[in-house]
Amino acid sequence: MIDLVLTFLKIGAAAYGGGWTIVGIIQTDVVGRGWLSPEAFTDLVAVAQVTPGPVALNAATLVGWRLYGLPGAIAATLSVVAVPLAAAVAISLLSKKALKSGGKLTEALKTGTLGLLAMTLWAFMPQAAASWRTAGLSLLAFGVSAFTKVNPLWVILGSGFLGMIARLVWG
């Protein structure tokens, strides 16, 4: 349980650039340490996506739940938000001026964030490329969300229903 708390504290500290960047780190940590199998983790991400709330938070809650039940879910959720909350308090107490020099730092963070996105892609690519069906759905999702303004939720739910139909029809 202490390992769980420390891991999610650490992950929360690097949570720049939105939820998806963190999901890759969670996957590397949780699957890399053998806490969950890759298959169990993909299921967990699928559930985290279709639940209200930020996907990284949901994923953290679910990992805690799978490992230690309710106490684990509470511990993982609080750990992953601890650093962001502390940062929010600190930044509210400091003056806004501290941020105005942020141009160069913002660019450096973008570099790091793109790296994290690459890592997330790398971690999930093998499972998506495992069959023509999942690879096709992934390419379709890329096309729709890169070139249209469709809410990602509809992409996720739509793909879920396509997956359900495909499974029921072709097995």
Binding site: T42, Q49, L117, A128, T134, S138, A141, A146, S159, I165
Partner: peptide, 27 residues
């Protein structure tokens, strides 16, 4: 249950696509 299994597989399959689209927009 096969329907649930299919739904979860489909919902997960879009993850790399969505992440790639996010990176694409930043780039």
């Amino acid at each position: 249950h096969p329907a649930l299994r299919g739904f979860l597989d489909g919902a997960f399959a879009v993850v790399p696509g969505l992440v790639a689209a996010l990176a694409f927009n930043v780039i």
